[in-house]
Design a protein around this nucleic acid. Structure first.
Lengths: 153, 153
DNA sequence: CCAGCGTAGTTGAGCGCTCAATTATTTCCG
DNA sequence: CGGAAATAATTGAGCGCTCAACTACGCTGG
């Protein structure tokens, strides 16, 4: 049992600032989307990924990977999106286990209506508060964390 | 109605990297705490704040502010922590509306047992993956975001 | 001195997520 | 080929969070 490597003061400050910023930010984003577009942030992410895919359609597994969510979470979420008429599910060709989620026209329009407000919020709380070099730094930091976590799943 | 100021490529990459990193990270932290210490990250935060307070006790409102959580969330959370015997609530002196949450000895020991694993996880996925200057950058970035959000509530 | 407003905290309904179990299909390989 | 393991997706129970409504108390001004 090795000694615990506690965080130094500088590390502690950075970690807590990141944590606090992220909580405040995610709350603000969730609330903005909920109020202005009647959807949680997770739904927005799903709609974005679908809108960017070929034919605005993706296999459930691919959609789960690209949104970094579990199959279960995605199943529940897509079921609710289907109830709202924003997404449609149909059997995948060539693999009878598979399902393909497709963004409907209504779903696309809902996304198009939600996007400007969301982007404005991201700008107001993040991008416009950072110097250009901090934006670059943030990408590098994020990427470093992703690199450590993508594999070890 | 002004034009929407969409994100540039660099801004988009930074935002998505941050978002993806944070989702992966929060999932990993939550899972680690859930598996090793049988508590969600939110409970850990509450225990930490209480452990650092004078007398290991805080008014509910102060605890809500310091964990950046709503009064409602805190009420629910502390109720569950009380069921587990990790926290105790008693009336505040001098204000009969007030409640003071106190960390119990059991709660303190639970926290002490959980902390090393949690810190190791934070190190493994964040701190040890960043260069020292990136740690400094992360603090500045986090602080900039906090500054924009603390007031506008 | 009490009416009205603000503050402290709780509660319950409803939603989204996690975990574990389940169904259905495909792939691997002896 | 045929049975076992892997893959795709769903389901239901249970938990934590949000929102809105509510209780209870404190403060301040006419």
């Amino acid at each position: 049992m090795a000694e615990v490597r506690w965080l130094s003061d500088a590390e502690q400050r950075a970690w807590r600032a990141y944590l606090e910023a992220t909580m405040l930010l995610f709350d603000a984003l969730d609330r903005q989307l909920q109020v202005d577009a009647d959807m949680p942030h997770g739904y927005y992410e799903i709609l974005v990924r679908l809108s960017e895919a070929d034919g605005r359609a993706l296999r459930m597994s691919d959609l789960a990977n690209s949104t970094r969510s579990s199959r279960s979470r995605l199943s529940h979420a897509v079921a609710r999106l289907e109830d709202r008429g924003w997404v449609r599910r149909c059997a995948a060709e060539g693999d009878r286990r598979g399902q393909v989620a497709t963004l409907t026209d209504v779903g696309f329009q809902v996304l198009a209506a939600a996007a400007p407000g969301h982007v404005e919020t991201v700008r107001a709380h993040v991008i416009d508060r950072l110097a250009p070099e901090q934006v670059t730094q943030l990408e590098a930091i994020g990427q470093a964390i992703i690199d450590g976590l993508s594999g070890s799943d």
